[in-house]
Nucleic acid binder design. Sequence first.
DNA 1: CAGGTC
DNA 2: CCTGG
Length: 287
Amino acid sequence: MRIDLEVSLDPTLGCGQAHRWHKLDDGSWEGVWRNQVVTMKQISPTSVEVIGTDDRKGITRYLGGDDDLETIISEISKRDEYVASLTDRCPGMRILRQDHWECLATYLLATNANVKRIGQMVESVCDHFGDDLGRRHGFPTPKQILDGCGCIAECRLGFRESRFITLAERVESGDIDVESFSEMNYEECVAALQDINGIGPKVADCVALFAFENMEAFPIDARISKVMEDIYGVTGSYKAVSAYGREKFGEYAGYAQEFLYHADFISRQARSRNPCHCSWQKCRRSA
DNA sequence: CAGGTC
DNA sequence: CCTGG
């Protein structure tokens, strides 16, 4: 199935928003979406070939296809020159609309772990408890996790394990109604999320942005924290830096965050691959 | 020490 | 604090 949409899969699927997409040797992306093994391949800047589902509307929505990129980019660009300069470099990057439960449970595991390790933990949890889909496993429901939780130690979640089980219990019992979060505005949503053990301000912002469509959320992770200091000279508490981002970039601050994140990701990647960039700077300085 | 949280 | 790159 071919989808005509301005979207760039590499920065959208491969930069840490969601954790189940793997890039295959042929350049396509394989992941699991709604318990279907889905493959997406970039055909042109404005079209992708999707295999594994025929839900055109659903997958388009998942890819953030309902967002008007032109409006969003113009809005965040007029608020900041630096972000404006980044948007051209990364056309078609979008914010995903992830499954509510999967996103929440995944980001609960994301504390104090690097991207690679988050992916390992998530994949392990899926392999242990999720539906067998052939090549991959689905993301488990709360019930599947609780039914199989005797062997959860094998997933090696560390100190996140008990939080993960407790979350599954609270959702399964109805104590937490995940769907109710989508009715809330940003402040309410983040506050409700932070009532969950193991979820602080950073994870709450990520889930509010990537699952519950609060596009003004501005999550501050280690990378963005450095960017905010280096580019804008902003330091301080999580609350302060995040509020600065929301106020500066406005209702689409989450998109601004993704552009800042992606630009830093690319520049660090280039620096580590090309050490002579550093020596060039030294030469220049000594000259 | 790592995309934090208790 | 768990665990692993």
